[in-house]
Write a protein that binds this DNA or RNA. Structure first.
Lengths: 104, 104
DNA sequence: TTTAAATATAACCTTTTGGTTATATGAATA
DNA sequence: TATTCATATAACCAAAAGGTTATATTTAAA
């Protein structure tokens, strides 16, 4: 649950996230944006729901989707921390160097 | 090439990126950190190399790996723009609202 | 010059991903 | 009420992901 890395791995899913961040979209609206089949879209929607990033609302024969903003905000923040740490390893090295220096 | 989303999809690969950002690591060093087999690690390394994020250097019987900092910096920056846009859709909506207002 | 260690590769396996077509179900409208 | 539109599901497929074991190959050290 909430493996944002899994959710964002596919460009179609990233676009769905973007669309549903703007406004609630029906499934058929989403389907019409892409060239792949409706069942293929359902599978992408299912993965996004599994990871908690999409909320589903049923109204009559329509199925509305929208981004769960708070879940996205949270897991994206975690992602940034994790990947930011990779960028900042040089700083970690400096820190380690300074700490080692303290010991002497 | 340089599909960072593919590269970071697996936690083992993210940890390899972190390790090799700190310092150049030999393959056996990397293997020893994890519980999976050496051929499994090679496959992860191959994916990271395919995406241009890892640089390989051969010295005798050792194979050294280190993060390609500039490629990582760049593709991470692209990722941030793409995912940042999802977060900031509310602002886009405001912009659209204001532009629509101009037309009237 | 054996031997041992580091790396590479082959062959295989299972699960997941990403897609398809065909068809069923359910709700709204003509 | 018959039809049409939106969604769901089943069955299938190919490729990618993520792993294994067994076995080369290459290089350094005993």
């Amino acid at each position: 649950m909430t493996d944002i890395y899994r959710a964002i791995a596919d460009p179609i899913r990233r676009q769905i996230l973007l669309m549903t961040a703007q406004k609630e979209c029906t499934q058929s609206e989403i389907v019409s944006v892409f060239t792949i089949s409706q069942p293929a879209i359902i599978k992408h929607l299912t993965i996004l729901k599994e990871e908690g990033l999409l909320e589903e609302r049923r109204s009559g024969r329509y199925c509305f989707y929208r981004l769960n903003q708070s879940v996205f905000r949270n897991s994206y923040s975690n992602l940034q921390q994790e990947l930011g740490a990779i960028l900042e390893q040089k700083l970690v090295n400096l820190k380690l160097f300074l700490e080692k220096d303290d010991d002497q």
